[in-house]
Simulated scan of single mutants.
Amino acid sequence: MKKHLKLLLASLAIFAFVSCSSNDDDQNFDLLGVWESTVSDTNSVSTFNLVFGESNTGLTINSVVNGELEISSINTFRWELKGITVTLEDIDTDDKVYTLNTEGQLVLMTSDNQTVILDKVSDDYAKYY
């Protein structure tokens, strides 16, 4: 009986260690995709997109539509995810640290104390690469 108890305890210990995983596993999975923030006024619509791709690559896409005129820009960046903090690297801006909130949104507090909230609009980032 003692032998069976030891075997059972050893099996449970092995199972516990094998089934435990790092909290960082698959965090990138939720981040990968297209995130968007849109601001409208009477004359124009401004859209800001962050596209997070594999291998920690990404794109920022800014567009402003004013009547029939559309102005767009695109820039590349690398990104790093630590816990709920997303940092954009290799990009020329002061506003590069985002936080994932409990509602599943990306939140940026800009250098001029504005809050930008981005919602995930698609898991499919492939059309941007």
Rank of each mutant, 00 (worst) to 15 (best):
Ile61Pro: 03
Gly104Trp: 05
Phe77Ser: 05
Leu12Ala: 12
Lys6Arg: 09
Ile74Asn: 07
Thr93Pro: 10
Thr93Ala: 08
Gln114Arg: 06
Asp30His: 00
Ser63Thr: 09
Ala10Gly: 02
Asn56Gly: 06
Lys3Arg: 13
Asp25Gln: 13
Asn23Phe: 10
Asp119Gln: 15
Val65Lys: 00
Thr42Asp: 10
His4Thr: 08
Asn101Lys: 13
Val65Asp: 01
Leu8Gly: 03
Trp35His: 02
Thr42Gly: 03
Val39Lys: 03
Val18Leu: 07
Ser46Phe: 14
Glu89Met: 14
Val121Met: 03
Ser22Ala: 03
Ile91His: 10
Asp119His: 15
Ile61Lys: 11
Asn75Ala: 00
Thr87Pro: 02
Cys20Phe: 11
Glu80Ser: 11
Val86Ala: 03
Ser22Asp: 11
Ala126His: 06
Tyr98Leu: 15
Glu36Phe: 06
Gln27Arg: 15
Thr115Ile: 14
Asp123Gly: 14
Leu81His: 01
Thr42Lys: 05
Glu54Lys: 15
Arg78Thr: 13
Leu12Met: 14
Glu54Arg: 14
Ala13Leu: 14
Phe17Ala: 08
Val51Leu: 01
Ser73Glu: 12
Val97Leu: 10
Asp92His: 11
His4Lys: 11
Thr76Asp: 09
Ile74Arg: 10
Cys20Gln: 05
Asn75Ile: 00
Gln27Asp: 06
Glu89Pro: 05
Ile84Asn: 12
Lys6Cys: 08
Phe77Tyr: 15
Gly67Tyr: 01
Leu32His: 06
Trp35Val: 04
Glu80Gln: 12
Asp92Phe: 14
Ile117Ala: 02
Tyr129Asp: 03
Leu100Trp: 12
Trp79Gln: 08
Asn28Val: 04
Ser55Arg: 13
Asn101Ala: 13
Ile14Cys: 13
Asp95Leu: 08
Asp124Cys: 07
Asp92Gln: 15
Leu50Asn: 09
Val51His: 01
Thr93Asp: 05
Leu106Arg: 07
Ile117Thr: 12
Ile84Gln: 10
Gly104Tyr: 06
Ala10Lys: 00
Ser73Ala: 14
Leu7Arg: 05
Leu106Ile: 11
Trp79Val: 09
